[in-house]
Write a protein that binds this DNA or RNA. Structure first.
Lengths: 108, 108
DNA sequence: TACCACTACACGGTATCACTGAGTACCGGC
DNA sequence: GCCGGTACTCAGTGATACCGTGTAGTGGTA
């Protein structure tokens, strides 16, 4: 699916938050997870910029730990602010998708 | 609902296409329709930039006609390219919302 | 030992899009 | 005459995903 990039704006960050919320993880694994979910065009560079933004905005805790198969990994977990932001994201998503569906049905 | 603007990227243009597709209309009315649908923060300036973009990209036909209650209106209708684009928009939306729902359910 | 693939992160620059704010203009009622 | 509602335009801003490139650690293989 191409041409999704504009539509991903605002939602991709929420997706990353959700993935981190489901279990502690790191950038490379988040990219793989997104690709497996069907977001095949999302590349590492995009995910890392989001992770750095989350960190800068104080939504995640970071722990650097060595890996046995490569360079050290930065593991991310949600803090309270992150969980709050994630809730807000889902509220916004539900709101938006409901309106869009209403529009699609030709309703008012 | 605030903080929706980023999430609207890519979808708002599709919404405008859909509204035009449902019946010939003009900018001011499109704004009203969006507001009534629940997109309360969308203002005229935003809609007009989208309409000008649609026109520039050759997705709509334009007819200027006088109004009895104000300045002349620019009425928009979809052409073949516009209908094709609208179809693509709904395909993208369905694709995206399906992936997001999968993610929300913790699925893989 | 030299090379390559995979893993893992960082960063500067770009394009696109919704939004802002200011401006122009037409109409009717007080 | 002035103000509110109608109706469109346009230059500039900010946020975000994407691109390309660079750096680096590990393990396999020839």
């Amino acid at each position: 699916m191409d041409g999704l990039t504009e539509m991903l704006k605002g939602t991709l960050e929420g997706c990353v938050l959700e993935i981190i919320g489901q279990s502690e993880t790191y950038g490379y694994a988040v990219t793989r997870r997104l690709n497996d979910l069907g977001f095949t065009d999302v590349v590492e560079g995009t995910v890392y910029t989001i992770l750095l933004r989350l960190e800068k905005n104080g939504l995640v805790e970071v722990a650097k730990r060595p890996s046995e198969v490569g360079p050290p990994r930065k593991f991310y977990t949600l803090n309270d602010a992150g969980r709050s932001e994630l809730e807000k994201f889902w509220a916004k998503w539900q709101y938006l998708s409901a309106r869009i569906d209403t529009l699609k049905e030709g309703g008012r």
